[in-house]
């Protein structure tokens, strides 16, 4: 069920480097531009795409991703349109894994079964749903696994060794290590601590470990790539989208190129990571 993800991690590993996971918000700044951005990401060097499902109340996200979600909602993005974005992306790209990331309420209201069927049929590979800890696995995680979608769990600095097995139990595809206790786009993590955390996780799982939160520059990406199997960058990318817009939050000619440029520099950073280490 994690074929596309497994292949991507194997490929990066064969090249002796970490994978680059890029987060963008679906429908930001508008649906059409968002599809263009998605299509530009693999070309610029993204290995895996995390696609944010906008929500009015993203309680684990910092200002950049909050703003991106509100821009997308203001432009009319819905969960149905987000799923359609994946379908449109898959028409041209059958290999880049897509992970939908968001909060449970829009999925719950859409209907869990319907959502999972559509996500699988349209080419989604996995889900990250921030407000569903292992204690609530029967809500979405177990149904997702049963239709062949990976449920990717976040492990955090507060997840101790005692709790880790519960967090990892139904995780598939990869494990996402949240490098700082905080919200997305927050302080840059201490890279030595991150290295130790990845080592700790690897004692508990054979899955690839991706590290995110606070990774903003190609230099950060390189430092994380030295220790982790994948580097996740989100806020810095949606910030780049924000800075490219006109005064009314509309896309400009520079929106897609600006994102592509940042992603290619991040990809270069990720490729430098192991070489430097």
């Amino acid at each position: 069920m994690t074929a596309r993800l497994d292949a991507r991690f194997a490929q990066a590993s064969a090249q002796g480097r970490a994978a680059l996971v890029t987060f963008v918000t679906a429908g930001d700044p508008d649906h059409e531009t968002s599809l263009e951005i998605l299509r530009a990401l693999p070309k610029a060097g993204a290995d895996i795409i995390e696609l944010g499902m906008p929500f009015t109340d993203p309680m684990a996200d910092g200002p950049a991703i909050q703003a991106a979600g509100l821009r997308a909602l203001a432009a009319g993005e819905t969960l149905v349109k987000t799923l359609d974005l994946v379908r449109a992306f898959r028409e041209q790209d059958q290999t880049t894994p897509i992970i939908l990331m968001g909060y449970y309420n829009p999925i719950y209201v859409h209907g869990v079964e319907r959502f999972l069927d559509e996500a699988r049929d349209f080419g989604v590979d996995g889900l990250i749903v921030v407000d569903l800890p292992p204690e609530e696995d029967e809500e979405l995680c177990l149904p997702a696994l049963s239709v062949g979608l990976a449920f990717i769990r976040l492990a955090t600095p507060t997840t101790d060794d005692k709790r880790l097995p519960a967090v990892l139990k139904n995780t598939a595809g990869f494990v996402y290590y949240v490098s700082v206790a905080g919200i997305t786009g927050s302080a840059t993590p201490d890279f030595n601590v991150v290295g130790a955390a990845v080592t700790r996780l690897k004692r508990h799982t054979k899955l690839p470990v991706a590290v995110g939160f606070g990774v903003k520059t190609p230099e950060h990406a390189a430092a994380i790539a030295a220790a982790a199997d994948a580097v996740v960058v989100g806020s810095a990318i949606v910030d780049t989208v924000a800075k490219s817009l006109d005064g009314e939050n509309r896309a400009t000619a520079s929106t897609v190129p600006a994102v592509a440029d940042l992603v290619s520099r991040l990809a270069a950073g990720v490729r430098r990571g192991r070489a430097a280490a």
Binding site: M59, A60, L132, P133, E135, T156, T158, R163, V178, A181
Partner: peptide
């Protein structure tokens, strides 16, 4: 009811 929170908060 329930406990629909991010993993960071769950141990707390």
């Amino acid at each position: 009811g329930g406990r629909f929170v991010a993993e960071t908060l769950m141990p707390l």
